[in-house]
Amino acid sequence: MTSEMTARLLRLLSLLQTRREWSGADLADRLEVTVRTVRRDVDRLRELGYPVDSARGHAGGYRLASGAALPPLLLDDDEAVAIAVALRTAAGGLTGIEETALRALAKLEQVLPRRLRGQVTAVQAAAAGIPWETRGARADPALLAALAVACRDHEVVGFDYRTRDGTTTGRRAEPCHLVASGNLWYLLAHDVDKDDWRLFRLDRIARATPTGRRVPPRPVPGDDPVAFVAERLATAPTRHRAVATVHAPADRVRARTRGLATRIQPLDGTTCRLDASDDDLPRIAQVLSGLDVDYTLEADPAVLHHLRTSAHRTLRATG
């Protein structure tokens, strides 16, 4: 297959991915070839495994059908930049994304040409979003992408980590999974020096550097990374304690409290127990205000003071 024909087939495949259906004449005009050449090129795409449907007659045309496997997507420069920026924005904390979406970001950034990678960074820096629904530190999208690649490649990473008391230490870890809880991202990894599993908040990680050392995949205890992280978070120490007995079924409360499912325990069919303990007082208030049902609260004096102050401020504002 000549280079000219290969380039034309790639261009034809790209066109078929941009619209639901193309007429043979339109494709021939775009490719600057005859309709007969378009038919031959479509047959070549079919031989390569691309499911191209066609219909004869005046209203007929060509369209790329759904196949058994996803064909390679051909993106122009603008489309690649737009997708990378969208994934970076989502990964950065404006919206919650699943680990599969994060892997997509890692794959895309790995193959982006240097010139496009610079454009993505520039657009991301210039187009800041307003985090109306999130509070607290947001994960760095570049860090998320780098750690996602390390998880995929089972590559040991070195980084500086700041603990709850503000102490910063150097760590070496084997990244395993990235898990989102509420508006925070966590890295589940095996600490090389401590020879134990550890959970690292991404907003406390700095200067993450791949070491080039790859290791065999290490099974997570219980074979369920999300459940393992949820258990660790449920038992992790917090600065402020706040436990509410909520007068609503557990399923209803879970639907109204994003990322806190493991901290909700049913007491009976109409009440449940919610552990809203946290290091951040406003975040506790945000969780409780989102319940929209009656509850009783057991909390530290600092929590109660913050809630009372906020409530009095609201009463004064409303006259």
Results as ranks from 00 to 15, higher is better:
45 L>H: 04
319 G>H: 10
91 A>Q: 06
254 R>V: 06
3 S>F: 12
202 L>V: 07
60 G>Y: 00
105 L>K: 03
29 D>Q: 15
268 D>G: 04
110 Q>E: 14
187 L>T: 04
12 L>E: 05
27 L>F: 04
130 I>S: 11
41 D>E: 13
154 H>T: 10
66 S>W: 08
203 D>W: 02
292 D>H: 14
137 A>D: 11
29 D>K: 13
164 R>Y: 03
118 G>M: 11
185 W>N: 08
199 L>T: 10
197 W>V: 10
61 G>K: 00
51 P>A: 01
109 E>L: 08
238 T>Y: 12
278 D>R: 04
131 P>R: 03
192 V>T: 12
291 L>N: 03
250 A>Y: 06
268 D>T: 03
10 L>S: 09
299 A>E: 09
34 T>W: 00
81 V>L: 10
170 G>W: 06
87 L>G: 04
88 R>Y: 15
100 T>Q: 10
101 A>S: 14
198 R>E: 09
203 D>S: 08
196 D>Y: 00
23 S>M: 07
227 A>E: 13
22 W>P: 02
96 G>H: 10
135 R>A: 14
91 A>I: 06
294 D>C: 07
166 G>D: 05
194 K>C: 07
190 H>F: 15
302 A>P: 03
72 P>D: 12
167 T>C: 05
61 G>F: 00
290 G>I: 02
1 M>T: 10
251 D>K: 09
217 P>T: 04
297 L>M: 02
174 E>I: 10
54 S>D: 13
303 V>M: 07
159 F>K: 09
178 L>Y: 03
319 G>N: 06
264 I>Q: 08
163 T>S: 15
69 A>V: 15
276 A>L: 07
240 H>E: 00
200 F>I: 06
230 A>N: 14
4 E>K: 15
174 E>K: 04
42 V>N: 05
60 G>Q: 04
98 E>M: 05
11 R>H: 15
232 R>C: 03
315 L>P: 01
73 L>M: 11
275 D>W: 02
43 D>H: 12
214 R>Y: 02
45 L>M: 01
26 D>V: 01
300 D>R: 04
49 G>L: 11
45 L>D: 09
14 S>I: 00
25 A>Y: 09
168 T>W: 04
204 R>V: 05
270 T>S: 14
300 D>W: 00
312 H>T: 12
109 E>Y: 02
244 A>R: 06
10 L>H: 10
217 P>F: 06
162 R>N: 05
220 V>M: 03
107 K>C: 07
205 I>N: 02
238 T>R: 14
314 T>S: 13
82 A>D: 14
153 D>I: 01
177 H>T: 12
181 S>E: 13
216 P>N: 07
81 V>H: 10
141 P>H: 03
293 V>C: 13
67 G>A: 14
205 I>E: 01
47 E>T: 13
115 R>N: 10
71 P>K: 01
152 R>A: 15
104 A>Q: 14
180 A>L: 08
58 H>G: 00
198 R>S: 11
179 V>S: 02
80 A>R: 09
299 A>T: 02
25 A>H: 14
90 A>N: 08
72 P>N: 06
